[in-house]
Design a protein around this nucleic acid. Structure first.
Length: 253
DNA sequence: CGTAATACG
């Protein structure tokens, strides 16, 4: 079972680049994408119906903004949009789907760089997701929580730690939320499987950041610890281009 | 710098 997560930075844009070829060669069992930047009205058949996959989309109300989707070979038992909180659900950031032996959450966490207001929104979103995950685990669900968390956890997870400690994405309070998430019984599968490895999943399009490898690891597959024994491999596909993020992989037995 | 709409990341 191979679950991929990829912030594609515009589904229409990447579909004109390497998206379909990449799916054919990588053959994901489940593919979670973030920042689809698409609405129901602009979603064409080619993106909705990919051979061999069921597809599910959550849209933001704002045009060309946010949005997540899941392509899955296995038909989910149930699909839920959002978490029942209107201020978070209006931005198309969360899809939850229940499979036979685990529950998948595909989440595009807010970016907090625009303003103090958006940083507050991001922190409130983080806390709402933690409560939601804890509720699901209390119902004996086993969770894979993947997506773009928009925060690098430790100094290992960012090229220029010192220069970014006052920037949203590497603020102490954002990093401390990831600590809190872990303390609540969730595991960053990449760090669990690769304790010493330094790789990133996102590079700014500006300042030739990717060629300089001035990156951040902000995309994660977390699992609730009741699922940890099934984790076989976690990786970052740093060679894949087409977006400012690269795909990440979780392999489970 | 890039996507997609003229804002946001």
């Amino acid at each position: 079972m191979r679950i991929y997560s990829w912030n594609v930075n515009g589904l229409r844009a990447i579909s004109k680049k390497n998206f379909f070829d990449w799916i054919r060669s990588e053959n994901p069992d489940i593919l979670c994408v973030q920042e689809t930047k698409i609405q129901e009205a602009t979603l064409d058949d080619k993106l909705r119906n990919i051979n061999g996959y069921h597809s599910y989309f959550s849209f933001a109300q704002k045009k060309g903004y946010s949005g997540v989707a899941v392509y899955t070979k296995f038909k989910p038992i149930s699909v839920k949009h959002g978490i029942g909180i209107p201020e978070f659900d209006s931005e198309g950031r969360i899809l939850t789907m229940e499979f036979k032996d685990f529950t998948l959450l595909n989440i595009y966490f807010p970016n907090g760089q625009m303003s103090q207001e958006r940083l507050n929104y991001k922190m409130n979103f983080y806390n709402a997701v933690l409560n939601y995950c804890n509720f699901l685990v209390s119902q004996n669900r086993k969770l894979v929580i993947c997506g773009d968390y928009n925060t690098a956890h430790t100094e290992m997870d960012i090229k220029n730690a010192k220069a970014n400690e006052k920037n949203s994405g590497f603020l102490p309070m954002e990093r401390q939320w990831l600590d809190k998430f872990i303390k609540n019984g969730y595991t960053d599968t990449y760090r669990y499987m690769n304790p010493q490895k330094v790789e990133y999943s996102w590079w700014s399009y500006r300042f030739k950041a990717r060629e300089r490898n001035a990156g951040w690891r902000i995309d994660y597959h977390f699992v609730s610890n009741n699922l940890l024994k099934r984790v076989k491999k976690a990786a970052i596909l740093t060679q894949v281009t087409g977006s400012d993020h690269c795909p990440i992989l979780l392999e489970m037995i």
